[in-house]
Amino acid sequence: MSNSRENILQRLRRGRPELPAATGEIQIDSLAWDLEQRINTFCDRMASVKAEVHMVTEGDWPTKLRELAADRQLSNLLYAPKGPLAAEIESAWTENDSCTKLITREESVDEWKQELFYQVDGAVTSVRSGIAEVGTLILWPTREEPRTFSLVPPVHFAVLKAENLHHTFADAMEVEQWRQGMPTNVVLISGPSKSADIEQTLAYGVHGPTELVVLLVR
């Protein structure tokens, strides 16, 4: 194997065509939207990919979450016990009875994979930031909030602060200084899982969530 490495690199070095590097910065106008425009574009884009967006406030989003879960008659809702949303979610649920049971697990997912795959109806996660131009959530999973929460359960509720809406993907990377250190996984999510592999007809909920519900906090 180590030979392969040397052989490939050697061939590339020997064969490298003598071409000048392409130069000349290509100027593509960046966007200058105010928050309102960013929110509007984000919502339009999200709607176009069949994601639901609800405008909520710092104070009322947990209640809204509970309502939305109840509307869907979810028997349970998964959240991360030590995640950034935990305290507020718990407070909304303890105050009132809800048909949706709040569940959480602290163990590694391997320990309760069966339950995650077959018994969890929905999950809620935080969102690091968003991209207005294309209508995208940026999730930056952590030890506290695992990757599978936004992937395996059929309904994914995502809580995004409107002030964290960037104009573009490039802005998000630049402002948040991604190159300083990437986490294990970053995932950009734009809508529920879908496929058009059969006759180019869109079908939702292929392998990931069937529904994506965004709570946009202002």
């Binding site: 590694s108 391997d110 695992p146 996984n185 970053v186 995932v187 899982s193 058009a196």
Partner: peptide
């Protein structure tokens, strides 16, 4: 490719599961 502004998922993987992470 498909006229989508962005795909549903754009997945960026930089390492295997790290100490203390619960999946991956």
């Amino acid at each position: 490719a498909t006229g989508q502004h962005i795909t549903t998922y754009f997945n960026m993987i930089t390492s295997p599961r790290k100490e203390g992470e619960k999946d991956g």
